[in-house]
Protein backbone atom coordinates (compact mmCIF):
# COMPACT_ATOMS: atom_id res chain seq x y z
CA UNK A 1 0.00 0.00 0.00
CA UNK A 2 1.34 3.34 -1.02
CA UNK A 3 1.00 5.28 2.19
CA UNK A 4 2.47 2.66 4.47
CA UNK A 5 6.14 2.09 4.88
CA UNK A 6 7.10 -1.55 5.18
CA UNK A 7 10.11 -2.22 7.40
CA UNK A 8 12.22 -5.14 6.25
CA UNK A 9 12.58 -8.27 8.35
CA UNK A 10 16.31 -7.63 8.32
CA UNK A 11 16.00 -4.29 10.08
CA UNK A 12 13.68 -5.85 12.64
CA UNK A 13 16.29 -8.50 13.33
CA UNK A 14 19.02 -5.91 13.82
CA UNK A 15 16.84 -4.01 16.29
CA UNK A 16 16.01 -7.20 18.12
CA UNK A 17 19.68 -8.11 18.52
CA UNK A 18 20.41 -4.58 19.77
CA UNK A 19 17.63 -4.89 22.34
CA UNK A 20 19.00 -8.18 23.65
CA UNK A 21 22.51 -6.76 23.86
CA UNK A 22 21.19 -3.79 25.81
CA UNK A 23 19.41 -6.14 28.19
CA UNK A 24 22.69 -7.92 28.92
CA UNK A 25 24.39 -4.56 29.35
CA UNK A 26 21.80 -3.42 31.94
CA UNK A 27 22.30 -6.52 34.01
CA UNK A 28 26.08 -6.23 33.65
CA UNK A 29 25.96 -2.61 34.81
CA UNK A 30 23.80 -3.52 37.72
CA UNK A 31 26.29 -6.12 38.90
CA UNK A 32 29.43 -4.12 38.09
CA UNK A 33 29.12 -0.48 39.09
CA UNK A 34 29.60 0.69 42.67
CA UNK A 35 27.73 3.99 42.97
CA UNK A 36 24.02 3.52 43.59
CA UNK A 37 23.15 6.80 41.93
CA UNK A 38 25.10 5.83 38.84
CA UNK A 39 23.60 2.36 38.68
CA UNK A 40 20.09 3.80 38.81
CA UNK A 41 20.72 6.32 36.07
CA UNK A 42 22.47 3.70 33.98
CA UNK A 43 19.58 1.23 34.22
CA UNK A 44 16.98 3.88 33.48
CA UNK A 45 19.07 5.35 30.65
CA UNK A 46 19.26 1.98 28.96
CA UNK A 47 15.54 1.47 29.48
CA UNK A 48 14.92 4.74 27.66
CA UNK A 49 17.12 3.66 24.75
CA UNK A 50 15.40 0.30 24.54
CA UNK A 51 11.99 1.92 24.64
CA UNK A 52 13.01 4.34 21.90
CA UNK A 53 14.17 1.47 19.70
CA UNK A 54 10.87 -0.33 20.16
CA UNK A 55 8.80 2.78 19.57
CA UNK A 56 10.74 4.06 16.57
CA UNK A 57 11.17 0.77 14.73
CA UNK A 58 8.87 -1.96 16.02
CA UNK A 59 6.06 0.59 16.25
CA UNK A 60 7.39 2.29 13.09
CA UNK A 61 6.98 5.81 14.46
CA UNK A 62 10.15 6.75 12.62
CA UNK A 63 8.28 6.30 9.34
CA UNK A 64 4.92 7.63 10.51
CA UNK A 65 3.06 10.85 9.95
CA UNK A 66 3.66 13.97 12.00
CA UNK A 67 0.33 13.42 13.70
CA UNK A 68 1.54 10.12 15.14
CA UNK A 69 4.60 11.88 16.53
CA UNK A 70 2.35 14.50 18.09
CA UNK A 71 0.12 11.97 19.82
CA UNK A 72 3.01 9.81 20.99
CA UNK A 73 4.74 12.97 22.23
CA UNK A 74 1.62 14.38 23.90
CA UNK A 75 1.38 11.33 26.16
CA UNK A 76 4.85 12.07 27.52
CA UNK A 77 4.27 15.80 27.83
CA UNK A 78 1.21 15.06 29.97
CA UNK A 79 3.14 12.53 31.99
CA UNK A 80 5.70 15.25 32.56
CA UNK A 81 2.99 17.65 33.78
CA UNK A 82 1.75 15.04 36.22
CA UNK A 83 5.23 14.41 37.61
CA UNK A 84 6.44 18.00 37.61
CA UNK A 85 3.52 19.54 39.45
CA UNK A 86 3.21 16.64 41.89
CA UNK A 87 6.88 16.85 42.81
CA UNK A 88 6.62 20.61 42.99
CA UNK A 89 4.59 19.84 46.09
CA UNK A 90 6.60 16.98 47.53
CA UNK A 91 10.02 18.51 47.09
CA UNK A 92 8.96 21.68 48.86
CA UNK A 93 7.11 20.12 51.78
CA UNK A 94 8.32 21.46 55.08
CA UNK A 95 10.25 24.30 53.47
CA UNK A 96 7.31 26.61 53.71
CA UNK A 97 7.65 30.26 54.69
CA UNK A 98 6.29 29.61 58.16
CA UNK A 99 9.55 27.83 58.88
CA UNK A 100 11.40 31.06 58.26
CA UNK A 101 10.25 32.21 61.66
CA UNK A 102 11.85 29.32 63.44
CA UNK A 103 15.60 29.73 63.45
CA UNK A 104 17.20 31.51 60.53
CA UNK A 105 20.97 31.19 60.79
CA UNK A 106 22.95 33.23 58.28
CA UNK A 107 20.15 33.04 55.79
CA UNK A 108 19.96 29.27 56.03
CA UNK A 109 16.83 27.77 57.44
CA UNK A 110 17.46 25.28 60.20
CA UNK A 111 14.65 22.83 60.36
CA UNK A 112 13.37 21.09 63.42
CA UNK A 113 12.93 17.37 63.25
CA UNK A 114 9.53 16.21 64.43
CA UNK A 115 9.80 14.91 67.98
CA UNK A 116 8.07 11.63 67.40
CA UNK A 117 7.56 10.63 63.82
CA UNK A 118 5.38 7.72 64.90
CA UNK A 119 2.85 10.05 66.32
CA UNK A 120 1.38 11.86 63.37
CA UNK A 121 1.14 9.86 60.20
CA UNK A 122 1.13 12.87 57.91
CA UNK A 123 4.30 14.26 59.41
CA UNK A 124 6.06 11.24 57.98
CA UNK A 125 5.84 12.75 54.54
CA UNK A 126 7.43 15.96 55.68
CA UNK A 127 10.77 14.48 56.56
CA UNK A 128 13.40 13.99 53.93
Amino acid sequence: MSSQHVISAKLYTVIYILLMVLLVVTVGGDLMFESAMFRTSFALGIAVIKALLVVLFFMHVRYSSRLTWVFAGAAFVWLFILFALTFNDYFTRGTAPERLFEAPVGGIVVRQTPVNPEHEPSSVMQRH
Partner: peptide, 22 residues
Protein backbone atom coordinates in the same frame (compact mmCIF):
# COMPACT_ATOMS: atom_id res chain seq x y z
CA UNK B 1 -6.72 23.11 32.69
CA UNK B 2 -4.21 20.37 33.44
CA UNK B 3 -1.87 22.72 35.29
CA UNK B 4 -4.09 23.95 38.08
CA UNK B 5 -5.42 20.94 39.98
CA UNK B 6 -3.60 21.85 43.17
CA UNK B 7 -6.02 24.70 43.86
CA UNK B 8 -8.24 22.01 45.39
CA UNK B 9 -5.47 21.20 47.89
CA UNK B 10 -4.79 24.60 49.39
CA UNK B 11 -5.81 23.53 52.88
CA UNK B 12 -4.87 19.85 52.60
CA UNK B 13 -1.25 19.90 53.72
CA UNK B 14 0.20 20.47 50.29
CA UNK B 15 3.38 22.57 50.50
CA UNK B 16 2.80 26.29 50.48
CA UNK B 17 5.11 26.80 47.53
CA UNK B 18 3.11 24.18 45.67
CA UNK B 19 -0.03 26.11 46.49
CA UNK B 20 1.48 29.37 45.26
CA UNK B 21 2.36 27.91 41.88
CA UNK B 22 -1.07 26.36 41.48
Amino acid sequence: GFLVWGHHLFVSGQSIYGGLIF
